[in-house]
Every structure is written in structure tokens, then in C-alpha cells.
Design a protein around this nucleic acid. Structure first.
Length: 476
RNA sequence: GUCCCCAUCGUCUAGCCUGGUCCAGGACGACGGCCUUUCACGCCGUUAACAGGGGUUCAAAUCCCCUUGGGGACGCCA
């Protein structure tokens, strides 16, 4: 039998790291079993749900390449369905009308709390047999939770779990404004959508027994549940805004590749022996809820960075070259400058030099800058110039100039080895070490003391630009 | 407050179910070295953990109990 999983975010904010991970796990579970992965937007709370948030979540899912089957289900469009099921529960005696006001219920909770008991609704309207006549505006519908017994289930990650029914109060199924509540809508939808496996955040464990009770009241088959532990910040508290970026799209902005985030998230709370790097295919074939950990884990940016560096090295230069312009444009001060050389072919030549050096695309954009400007616009680091462009060094560069200027048959700017050999020959003739020119040449070419290989850099810059830079440096 | 859950290097984790092969393995980080025209990459090495206490057992990271520490849930939010 084919399984069905789903991701059901509520559009009250962006897709955050924790949500992305549960979505990923649900997606992987479905794919591993050859089943379907569905998306449902839980927007029953019209006050807090927004279209922007819905769009943002869908955008983030797309960026992570977590495609859902068919079109997304929106709970806000299914109120009639929920209400018909609530009526069914009312008719079968599993639910009842309650006219207690929020204030009254709050008072009950206060009282229970004061007595050292669990705060809950006391069920006073339970047997009142209220019928929602004309004046039912202020009434809600509550579920008649069994007062005794235990509700148990075998959690896919936590194992056998059981809750005393007495711990639960009579949850509201239908609000006084006629809108269904979360627990009711979730159960109706999961059943209606044929969901067989529910993987969700740990914060939902308490809802699970309630939902199971609902399934039983409807005589529906109960799906398998699994609760994934939370993601913590470095201070071991629940990950939140103050720990920095929470939104998945923030990571895109910071220059992370989606496959790096996916790999990182997959390994956070899940493992497969000692393996750290997983392709998408491996993730799909190896994923199992059996290997999900059951303790919370701390989000570690350093490890994400390492994975990102790894995937940057592996990525096709053309792809990165295609992504780079948007990061270059965001560079403060310099990104929006006119005259930057951003043609794809040039960027594709630059990227390989930067791949082993950049941990993020933002870093890559920063490092690419020296290749994008004209010699006249290149910024020279003052200290670098002072330290490395001393008279002796200038003299050598001046002598080197004609060699680099030589006919293209002899010095080919598509072959950095030839340039190196020519330079070496020059030095050998004078019994000089390579170090004598390395840093001076680097500063002349890049304005900095750290850069990619000298001759690779010259090749990417091209003959005219390389010569122009050396000349400009000599004139400084 | 009440209920539930969790506990291996700083971090992610393997091992735990089916005790011995574990003076606990891998990875990130940190530190040191090698390579080297700089910076990186890469390679090599070092660092560092079974929360504590009781049991059970010939034997416990592995099983049981307690303590401590952490987290979560208690809404006409999801």
C-alpha cells in the first residue's frame, strides 16, 4: 500500500528552519516509500494568516525543491466540510454545545491552577443538552473527551506513547464565529486527503491523543504519527529570532546553496552511520524514521558553512555564475556600481578560481569583485602597496612587463602554465626566487595580498587588463 | 503549578533495542603540522564525551530505579 505524508504549515510567518526540516523529513519518508507528499495550508485563523506568508512558504519549499503532489489544500476554503463533520459528531453524541464565555473558562483554569491541578475546562455544559436556537451566536461546540482510560499510540520516533484521557479537557471543535479549530480541521483533512503518516514537530505531541480520539469518534483509521524533536539555538533554548536567521530564505540571501541546507537539515536529528554528505538520491533511498533521533539538537552554523563550502566546490561553474549576479548586486557600496563586467562567460571563468575559497555565495561575490572592475577602478590596499611595491619590486615588474606583453604565440593568456614558465625563466636568468615577484605581482594585479593563483588570475583578467593593472600599479 | 519527553566530545552524531568486539567510532569546530607564489583547497595529527548516584550481572554507554539538568505541552493559535 502506498503511503501519503503531508506538510501542513500555518501561514503566519516565513518557513523557518524547524518547519523546513519536518517538511524535508515528510517528503523523504514519502519518497522513500514511493508514496505521495502533500501540502496543506492551515489558515483557519484568518486573523493571523496572510497571503504573503503563504507565498513565502511556497517559495521556500520550491527553493529547497520539496515538491508536493497536486495543488495545495487551503483549510479556509473547506469550512463547510468541517462543519458537516462537526454536525455528525453532535448527532452521534460525541460533541456538545457549550455557552461558557472565554472569561468563564479562564476563571476555571485559574482556579485549577491555584489548586495545583492541570488548568482545563471543567465540562459544565457537557450534559446540559443545549440546543443552538436562534441565539446560539456565542456558543462553541466541544468534544466530549472520555473521562477515563488511556489513549496510546506508537510514535514513529519516540516509540510507545500513552496519555491519560483525564489529562485532556473537552476541546473546542467549532468556535463561536463558526470557524473550526485546528484539531478538528487537521483530523478531517488528514482523513480526507488520505494521509497515512504524520511527521510533525514535537510541539504537537500533546495534540496527537486528542486527534486520535477524534479519529475514533468518526470510526476512521488512525494514521501513524511521528514527532520530531525541536531544533535549539546555541544556548540550548528553542531556536528563535534572537538566534539570528530563522527563515529559510534568509539562508538563501546569506549565500547558502539549497542542497547544503537540505543536507545539513537532514543530518540534524537523523543519521546513517558515519556518513555526512548525502546526495538527494541517497537521502531518498536511505531515509527511515528508525534513524531519527529523539533528543533535541542544536543548530550549528559552522557545520552548515562547511557543507555549503563543499557543495560550492562541487557545483558546476556555470550554475554558480548564474547565481552570482544577484549576490554581487547586494554587495554594499560596490555592488550597484556601473560598468561591472557581469557577462556569463566571464563569470564562468572567475568562479572556478573562487570555488575552493568561498564558503558562501556572498563571500564569492565579494571575492569576485576584483575581476569585475576596470583597472582604473581597482582599489589598491595602501598597506599592501607600501609593503610589496618597493623600488626593487617595481624594477622587476617593469622588466617583466615586456615578457607579458610579448606576442600571443609565445605567451598565451589561456594557459596559465605558460605564463608561469615565462616568469620562471625570467627569474632563473637572474638567479632570483619566485618570492621576489610573487607578492609584488599579486598586489599589482589584484590590489591585495591574498588572491587566487597569480597566473590563473592573469588568464581570467586577460592580457590587456593584466598589463593595464601592472602599469597602473607602477604609477602609484 | 500539572502532565509529557530528553540526556555520549563545545556541536551534529555512531554504538543502546538484541549487555562483553568501546580505556567509546565518525564529522564540524578549535589547535598543530605538511603542501605552497599569497589566501584558500587538500592531506596528516592533537584536543575532547558515556550528567551524577544507586542497583541487576561474571561483565553496563548499553537493562532498572532515584537525583540533577534541559526541553515541550497545558488557547474560541496552529
Amino acid at each position: 500500500m502506498s503511503i501519503v505524508t503531508r506538510f501542513a504549515p500555518s501561514p503566519t510567518g516565513y518557513l523557518h528552519i524547524g518547519g523546513a526540516r519536518t517538511a524535508l523529513f515528510s517528503w523523504l519518508l514519502a519518497k522513500n516509500q514511493g508514496g505521495k507528499f502533500l501540502l496543506r495550508v492551515e489558515d483557519t485563523d484568518r486573523e493571523r494568516s496572510t497571503q504573503e506568508a503563504t507565498d513565502a512558504i511556497i517559495e521556500a519549499m520550491a527553493w529547497l525543491d520539496l515538491a508536493a503532489e497536486g495543488t495545495a489544500v487551503f483549510q479556509s476554503q473547506r469550512f463547510d466540510l468541517y462543519n458537516s463533520y462537526i454536525d455528525q459528531l453532535l448527532a452521534s453524541g460525541h460533541a456538545y454545545w457549550c455557552r461558557c464565555t472565554p472569561d468563564e473558562v479562564e476563571a476555571m483554569r485559574e482556579k485549577a491552577r491555584a489548586e495545583g491541578k492541570k488548568p482545563k475546562y471543567d465540562g459544565r455544559c457537557r450534559e446540559a443538552g443545549l440546543v443552538p436556537g436562534e441565539g446560539a451566536q456565542g456558543c462553541v461546540v466541544r468534544f466530549k473527551t472520555p473521562q477515563d482510560g488511556v489513549t496510546a499510540f506508537d510514535d514513529m520516533v519516540k516509540g510507545p506513547t500513552a496519555v491519560q484521557n483525564a489529562e485532556m479537557d473537552d476541546m473546542i471543535l467549532r468556535r463561536s464565529d463558526g470557524a473550526p479549530t485546528y484539531n478538528l480541521a487537521v483530523v478531517v483533512d488528514d482523513h480526507d486527503m488520505g494521509v497515512t503518516h504524520v511527521l510533525r514537530g514535537d510541539d504537537h505531541v500533546a495534540n496527537t491523543p486528542r486527534q486520535i480520539l477524534l479519529y475514533k469518534a468518526f470510526s476512521w483509521e488512525v494514521p501513524k504519527f511521528g514527532h520530531v524533536p525541536m531544533i535549539l539555538g546555541p544556548d540550548k533554548a528553542k531556536l528563535s529570532k534572537r538566534h539570528g536567521a530563522l527563515s529559510v530564505m534568509e539562508y538563501k540571501k546569506m549565500g547558502y546553496l539549497p542542497e547544503a541546507l537540505v543536507n545539513y537539515l537532514a543530518r540534524l536529528g537523523w543519521s546513517h552511520g558515519d556518513q555526512e554528505i548525502f546526495s538527494r538520491e541517497e537521502l531518498v533511498s536511505m531515509f527511515s524514521t528508525n534513524n531519527l533521533g529523539n533528543s533535541p539538537s542544536v543548530f550549528d552554523v559552522k557545520k552548515l558553512e562547511w557543507l555549503n563550502a563543499h557543495y560550492i566546490k562541487e557545483a558546476a561553474p556555470e550554475r554558480l555564475a548564474g547565481l552570482l549576479p544577484q549576490y554581487i548586486a547586494e554587495l554594499p557600496e560596490i555592488g550597484a556600481a556601473a560598468g561591472l563586467k557581469l557577462d556569463p562567460a566571464h563569470l564562468s571563468n572567475i568562479v572556478p578560481l573562487l570555488q575552493p575559497r568561498a564558503k558562501t555565495l556572498v563571500e564569492m561575490a565579494e571575492m569576485s569583485h576584483l575581476f569585475l572592475v576596470d583597472s582604473a577602478a581597482l582599489a589598491y590596499d595602501e598597506k599592501a602597496v607600501a609593503d610589496h611595491l618597493k623600488p626593487e619590486a617595481r624594477a622587476l615588474l617593469t622588466e617583466l612587463l615586456p615578457i607579458y606583453e610579448a606576442a600571443s604565440e609565445k605567451i598565451d593568456y589561456t594557459d596559465h602554465k605558460a605564463l608561469e614558465a615565462a616568469t620562471q625563466a625570467f627569474l632563473d636568468a637572474r638567479e632570483l626566487k619566485f618570492k621576489a615577484v610573487a607578492q609584488p605581482l599579486r598586489v599589482a594585479l589584484t590590489g591585495k595580498t591574498a588572491s587566487p593563483g597569480l597566473f590563473e588570475t592573469m588568464c581570467v583578467l586577460g592580457k590587456a587588463e593584466s598589463l593595464a593593472r601592472i602599469k597602473r600599479a607602477l604609477a602609484l
